Amino acid sequence: MIAQSMKVAALLLGLFMVAGCGVDGEPIRPTLNAGVGVSSNGVHLGGRVGANKGPVSVTVGF
Rank of each mutant, 00 (worst) to 15 (best):
Met1Asp: 15
Met1Lys: 15
Met1Pro: 08
Met1Ile: 14
Ile2Arg: 13
Ile2Ala: 13
Ile2Tyr: 14
Ile2Gly: 14
Ala3Ile: 09
Gln4Pro: 04
Gln4Val: 06
Gln4Gly: 05
Ser5Arg: 15
Ser5Trp: 13
Ser5Thr: 14
Met6Leu: 15
Met6Val: 14
Val8Tyr: 05
Val8Leu: 07
Ala9Glu: 03
Ala9Thr: 11
Ala9Tyr: 09
Ala9Phe: 09
Ala9Met: 09
Ala10Leu: 05
Ala10Pro: 09
Leu11Ser: 14
Leu11Pro: 00
Leu12Gly: 02
Leu12Gln: 03
Leu13His: 07
Leu13Val: 05
Leu13Asp: 02
Gly14Ser: 07
Gly14Asp: 08
Gly14Trp: 02
Leu15Tyr: 03
Leu15Thr: 08
Leu15Phe: 06
Met17Cys: 04
Met17Tyr: 03
Met17Lys: 09
Val18Glu: 07
Ala19Arg: 00
Ala19Pro: 06
Ala19Met: 01
Gly20Phe: 02
Gly20Met: 00
Gly20Trp: 04
Gly20Pro: 06
Cys21Glu: 12
Cys21Pro: 05
Cys21Gly: 10
Gly22Arg: 08
Gly22Phe: 00
Gly22His: 02
Val23Trp: 07
Asp24Ile: 10
Glu26Trp: 08
Pro27His: 05
Pro27Ser: 05
Pro27Arg: 00
Ile28Arg: 01
Ile28Pro: 04
Arg29His: 09
Arg29Lys: 15
Arg29Ile: 03
Arg29Leu: 06
Pro30Glu: 12
Pro30Asp: 09
Thr31Met: 06
Thr31His: 03
Leu32Phe: 13
Asn33Trp: 08
Asn33Tyr: 13
Ala34Phe: 13
Gly35Met: 04
Gly35Val: 01
Val38Ser: 08
Val38Leu: 06
Ser39Asn: 14
Ser39Phe: 01
Ser39Arg: 11
Ser39Thr: 13
Ser40Phe: 12
Ser40Pro: 03
Ser40Cys: 00
Ser40Ile: 11
Asn41Leu: 13
Asn41Gly: 10
Asn41Met: 11
Gly42Ile: 10
Gly42Trp: 10
Gly42Ala: 10
Val43Ala: 12
Val43Cys: 09
His44Gly: 12
Leu45Thr: 10
Gly46Cys: 05
Gly46Ala: 14
Gly46Ser: 12
Gly46Asp: 12
Arg48Tyr: 05
Arg48His: 09
Arg48Ile: 01
Arg48Val: 09
Val49Asp: 04
Ala51Tyr: 04
Ala51Thr: 08
Asn52Gln: 15
Lys53Ala: 06
Lys53Ser: 04
Lys53Glu: 02
Lys53Gly: 02
Lys53Asn: 04
Lys53Val: 08
Gly54Cys: 00
Pro55Thr: 05
Pro55Tyr: 07
Pro55Trp: 11
Pro55Lys: 01
Val56Met: 12
Val56Asp: 10
Val56Asn: 11
Ser57Tyr: 03
Ser57Glu: 09
Ser57Arg: 12
Val58Met: 11
Val58Gly: 06
Val58Leu: 13
Val60Cys: 07
Gly61Cys: 09
Gly61His: 11
Phe62Thr: 07
Phe62Ile: 14
